[in-house]
Amino acid sequence: MAVIEVQNINKSFGDTQAVRDVSFEIPKGRIFGLLGPNGAGKTTAIRIINHILIADSGTVTINGMKVSSETQSMIGYMPEERGLYKKMKVGEQLIYLAQLKGLSHAEAKEKTRYWLDRFEATDWYHKEIGELSKGMSQKIQFIATIAHNPDIYIFDEPFSGLDPINSEMLKEIVIELRDKGNTILFSTHRMEQVEQMCDEICLFNKGRAVLKGNLRNIKQKFGKNTINIEFEGDASFLDKLEDVRINNRSTNFAEIRVLNGQHMQDILKTAMDHAEIYKFERVEPSLTEIFISTVGEDNINPNELG
């Protein structure tokens, strides 16, 4: 059953149409990635799901209920623009935010204590946010998002601005939450970061959902038409290859998308003539490659892959 169901939503701000006729479903217990470049309309879609913005047309349902103030408390939301009251104490602030999500004062206090302990931050309870380091306040922000124990979590660009330790921690939390049966939606424009985590994806471009579905299925549909090559020596042969697209190129690595059904053996031969090959692997395309093919030259029909 779909926990979040988005149907044909549209949203305009003046002359710019931020979201155009977008539909997708998020099944229960999955990690759903909303991917796309900056300005594609991801944040607008997320705000509509959170009932912060109201769609001009179309419907959004959460657990079968139309979005409203009630559905808000079913969701833990961490916006891209993160922030807390600087002059308020950590404990009071977390209790306040949890109360706004419908917890009683006692429940909110208990949860706050629990999560602060869990993050080894018990003694921050009486500190003001302004006194904390950036990494510390990021942890408080996570707690604020999850303390009311909802079953849907939405993270907008969660990894931007996170230090590596908190970034790892967030990944662990997200996977742990999923394993407990919760549903997670997050958005990012850094696709390679989330490839390992997402079960389902929806690719956004210019306000439209251009590709959506189960990540495995999508990759399979694209087929193993990509080569990961590691080599040492003259890299200029890469420029001579025809009918390919090269992503992630560095001095001794390249991800080569083979177009027009060209024989991969020919590419290997050319490469061997110019450089020493350490690794030559035929793989499914990366999300970045899938995105470029989808919105770029290949113009794949999204319905084909649904």
């Binding site: 912060i52 969701i75 961490m78 922030g83 807390l84 999500k101």
Partner: peptide, 16 residues
Amino acid sequence: EEKTNRIIEVIASSVK
């Protein structure tokens, strides 16, 4: 202050 602290969006996801 709520706007510059960016807490407003967290609050707006709970309160009208």
